[in-house]
C-alpha cells in the first residue's frame, strides 16, 4: 500500500515537469550557474558587470520596467552611486503648477527608463519585431538562464540551403533558428574595469546572472529562509512522530 502511495505521489510530481515544451529548438548548453542549487547565491561582481552589459548594449532596445534604480542596492551599489546612475537619465514628470509636463533627472525611486515610448514605437524601430521586456525574461522562458545564454552565444552563419531575409539572423539555439535580433555582443565591445575577460561568453554569462537576479531578486533570501523552515519542519515532524509513537504505544 505504501509503495502505491509513493508511486502515485512520484507520478504526480513527474507530471509537473513536462518534457516536450520545445519540439524543434536545440537544447541550449547546460552551464553551471552560481545561483543554481539549494545553496546557490549571486556573484556580486558578475551582477555589476552584467548590469554594465545591459546598460551599454541591451538597454538600447530592451526595457526592464519592473526594476527601479533603488533595486541596484541589492547588487552592491551604495546610495550615492545609485543617485548618480539614476541622474544620468532624464524623465518626464508633471504636470507642474502651470499644467505643463517638464523634464527632470532620474531619482532612485524611478524605474529603469524604457528605450521606447510604447510597444508600437519599439516595433516600428525594430522592423516589426518587439524586443521583449527583460525584467522577467529568465522566468518567462523554459530553462531561462541557459536559454538566454544560448541565444546570446548561438549566432552562426546560416546553413547554405537557408536563405535569410534582410533583418533576420541565424541562431542555433533559437526555436526555429531565425531571430530578428542582430548579434548584440562582440569581443571587447564593453570595457570591464575589474580585468575580467572581455569575451562574448563572459558578457553573456554576466548579463544572464544580472537578468536572473532581476527576474527573482528574492532568490537568496528565499533559499536562506527555506533552510530555516525545513529544519524547523523536520524537527517538528520528529517530535510529532515521537509523540505519536508514545501515545499509540498503549493503544493495541
Amino acid at each position: 500500500m505504501r509503495k502505491i502511495a509513493l508511486l502515485s505521489l512520484a507520478l504526480l510530481f513527474c507530471l509537473a515537469a513536462p518534457s516536450a515544451w520545445s519540439s524543434e529548438a536545440v537544447e541550449p548548453p547546460q552551464k553551471d550557474w552560481s545561483f543554481d542549487g539549494p545553496t546557490g547565491t549571486f556573484d556580486r561582481a558578475a551582477l555589476q558587470r552584467g548590469y554594465k552589459v545591459y546598460r551599454e548594449v541591451c538597454s538600447a532596445c530592451h526595457a526592464m520596467k519592473h526594476l527601479a534604480f533603488r533595486n541596484l542596492a541589492d547588487i552592491g551599489y551604495d546610495e550615492g552611486q545609485i543617485k548618480a546612475i539614476a541622474a544620468e537619465y532624464t524623465f518626464v514628470d508633471g504636470p507642474n503648477d502651470e499644467g505643463d509636463m517638464y523634464e527632470r533627472p532620474g531619482l532612485p525611486s524611478d524605474h529603469f527608463k524604457s528605450p521606447f515610448a510604447n510597444d508600437n514605437a519599439a516595433k516600428a524601430a525594430n522592423g516589426g519585431a518587439l524586443p521583449p521586456d527583460l525584467s522577467l525574461i529568465i522566468k518567462a522562458r523554459h530553462d531561462g538562464p541557459n536559454y538566454v545564454y544560448g541565444i546570446l552565444t548561438g549566432y552562426e552563419e546560416p546553413p547554405a540551403d537557408k536563405a535569410l531575409q534582410p533583418g533576420q539572423n541565424w541562431n542555433k539555439y533559437m526555436p526555429g533558428h531565425v531571430i530578428a535580433m542582430a548579434p548584440p555582443l562582440s569581443d571587447d565591445g564593453i570595457v570591464y574595469e575589474d580585468g575580467s575577460p572581455q569575451r562574448i561568453e563572459q558578457y553573456a554569462a554576466d548579463v544572464v546572472e544580472f537578468l536572473t537576479w532581476a527576474s527573482e531578486p528574492s532568490l537568496e533570501s528565499r533559499k536562506r529562509t527555506g533552510v530555516k523552515v525545513l529544519i524547523f519542519l523536520m524537527v517538528m515532524a520528529g517530535v510529532m512522530y515521537a509523540i505519536k509513537r508514545k501515545i499509540w504505544a498503549g493503544a493495541h
Binding site: A16, A17, R222, G226, L230, L233, A237, Y241
Partner: peptide, 25 residues
C-alpha cells in the same frame, strides 16, 4: 497527533517546492 505528524511531513515536501523550486509547477 497522527494527523499533525502526517501534516508536518507533507509540509516538508510543500516547503521544498516553495523555497527551492517555486515555479516548477
Amino acid at each position: 497527533m497522527k494527523d499533525t505528524f502526517g501534516l508536518a511531513v507533507f509540509l516538508i515536501i510543500y516547503a521544498v517546492f516553495i523555497f527551492y523550486m517555486p515555479n516548477a509547477l
